[in-house]
Design a protein around this nucleic acid. Structure first.
Length: 213
DNA sequence: CTAATTAATCGCTCCTTACC
DNA sequence: GGTAAGGAGCGATTAATTAG
């Protein structure tokens, strides 16, 4: 028995929607401290939340959403209901994926440039270390200096070249990502619109039927 | 009603980041 | 280098909800 444990706060569907809206609006995936803001916005005296609670609830919802998607797919492609709830969850998942991709890329880039630096330094060092005596017809100092200059030149050229290609690649990637994202969003909105129209048509039909009675 | 299932809380640990 | 601070996730425990 633990007496200092808080009373549990259960999320209702409305609460979930409000939560998901805030998460999409503020993107705490990218700015960790935003979890606090989200919690502050959603908290009322009756419904007290902290950043951790908000984060854990979001994760739980996403887990459930993923599970549902998997199951729908298995049951031979039942389309998910197009509701605000699922739309929001999809968007949050995209935010998460985007963040992950960015982190991975950053890491890879860092490693790459580190390796490049190491390599060049190593080679420069090799050329600076004294050779055996039998090569001494070339003055040591001159010998190493020219090589050092060469390597420095090589180094900066390589860096500029790789940076340029990396930048172009990155730009292209971003463009594609954005295009895909916009496409997805457009598709979802359209689906929602179609559903709304169908609902309206259905209601009209109902009205007609009842009036004609 | 009780048993089973699902969700919330919390302690702990691991990771990253900032600072020395 | 290391280490303090804070975020995040995992798992055990407990509480609430649902099924039977």
């Amino acid at each position: 028995m633990n007496f200092d444990r808080k009373k549990q706060i259960r999320f209702k569907n409305d609460d979930d929607i409000r939560l998901l809206r805030e998460v999409v609006a503020r993107n705490p995936i990218k700015n960790k401290n935003k979890w606090t803001e989200v919690a502050a916005v959603l908290s009322t005296p009756m419904f007290v939340l902290d950043a951790r609670r908000v984060r854990e609830r979001t994760n739980l919802l996403i887990e459930q959403h993923k599970r549902e998607n998997r199951e729908n797919l298995k049951k031979s492609g039942v389309d998910e209901d197009v509701t605000e709830r699922t739309t929001l969850l999809d968007e949050i998942m995209e935010l998460k994926e985007e963040e992950e991709r960015e982190k991975k890329e950053e890491k890879e880039k860092k490693e790459k440039s580190e390796n490049l630096g190491k390599e060049i330094r190593k080679r420069a060092l090799e050329c600076l270390t004294p050779k055996k005596d039998d090569e001494s017809d070339i003055p040591k100092r001159r010998y190493s200096q020219t090589y050092l200059v060469d390597y420095l030149k090589e180094k900066s050229e390589m860096e500029i070249a790789t940076k340029r290609t990396e930048l172009e690649l990155r730009k292209e990637e971003l463009r594609l990502q954005k295009a895909q994202f916009d496409l997805d969003r457009e598709e979802r909105l359209q689906r929602m619109e179609v559903e709304k129209q169908e609902k309206i048509a259905f209601m009209d039909l109902l009205k007609k039927l009842t009036n004609n009675k």
